[in-house]
């Protein structure tokens, strides 16, 4: 060891290998895995663009909700001008339900861009040895990747739902406020279901893919193609086929949870036609089936490539 005198009496030491005096309490590695996955995604321009689109959807629904509630509040004056409030805007339920339906699609694109390469890139780069040569279990890795993928819909769907709900509570007329309190439960239920389905399915597809871009394109295209095929089949009389498309099942569950009334403005935003399945329970099972399939695919791949 050599040392160099330093002004003020301090010394700068040039040392070789230095054992760590104190490791501190062991931190869960899943946090680092999720954070690194999202950090890498954030460095891509596509991520910022798609998150901006998600923000736009939120902003649009925010304006819709605020407009509706302001009209509710000051409706008497507007009504006197010949524009009945009920026909001008939909209900808060409709805004939340519509937000969940639209944001499911934009978030599907977001998770495809952000988490498409979560496992595919690790496999392609031979990084499994890098991970599992360290004190890391398969469960740590799975939690990390699922956490990273789940954080995207959490931020784009669940948090905005809470934000919209709080906005509604804040500016609603006192008479309407008590009714809005309980709206949080079904809205959050729909949001959690969306997060679960999106996070698990993208991770499952990424586990079997080799390239991030291929997985992303396959995910979004698959969702659209599946939706189109199911639409055709249900119109042709195969009603059961409707349960195959996740977004159709989600619509069914959200409509049941939020029971939205469709206003004139609402019908212009989302269309009069709402494709839904006959059974809410069947739709819920179908959604949980998609989530289970995604996670199952991921876990199967992990078990086949990594020794316990």
């Amino acid at each position: 060891m050599s040392d160099t005198p330093f002004e003020g009496g301090d010394r700068v030491f040039e040392v070789g290998y230095r054992p760590m005096p104190d490791r501190g309490k062991r931190q869960p590695p899943a946090v680092a895995i999720a954070r690194t996955m999202l950090t890498l995604a954030w460095r891509q321009r596509a991520t910022k663009i798609v998150l901006l689109v998600c923000l736009g959807v939120l902003a649009g629904h925010g304006v819709w909700l605020v407009g509706q509630l302001l009209f509710e509040r000051f409706g008497a004056e507007v009504g006197a001008a010949g524009m009945p409030v009920g026909e001008l805007v939909g209900s808060a339920r409709e805004v939340l339900a519509n937000f969940l339906r639209v944001q499911f699609f934009t978030t599907a694109i977001a998770v495809a861009v952000i988490a498409g390469g979560a496992i595919a890139e690790d496999r392609a780069a031979g990084a499994f040895d890098l991970y599992f040569a360290r004190p890391l279990t398969r469960a740590d890795y799975a939690w990390g990747k699922l956490g990273g993928a789940g954080l995207v819909p959490f931020v784009t769907i669940l948090l905005p739902v809470v934000l919209l709900w709080l906005t509604a509570i804040g500016i609603a007329p006192p008479a309407l406020r008590s009714e809005l309190w309980w709206l949080a439960v079904p809205a959050l239920g729909g949001g959690i279901l969306s997060v679960l389905v999106l996070a698990t399915t993208i991770i499952g597809l990424s586990a079997v893919g080799q390239k991030a871009r291929t997985v992303s394109i396959a995910y979004v295209a698959g969702l659209l193609v599946l939706s189109g095929i199911v639409e055709g089949l249900t119109n042709g009389g195969f009603a059961l086929a409707g349960y195959i498309a996740p977004e159709r099942s989600l619509h069914t569950v959200i409509d049941w949870l939020l029971a939205p009334e469709q206003s004139m403005l609402g019908s212009q935003v989302s269309g009069r036609y709402r494709p839904i399945n006959h059974s809410v329970f069947g739709s819920l099972v179908a959604l949980l089936g998609w989530a289970g399939a995604g996670f199952g695919l991921f876990w199967w791949r992990l078990r086949s490539e990594v020794v316990g």
Partner: peptide, 23 residues
Amino acid sequence: GPGRIPGLSGLESVAYAAELCGL
């Protein structure tokens, strides 16, 4: 083999390895 995570810098790679070990 290569065993790297593309996109991370050398510093980030080493710090990430440390975090995977619980630091």
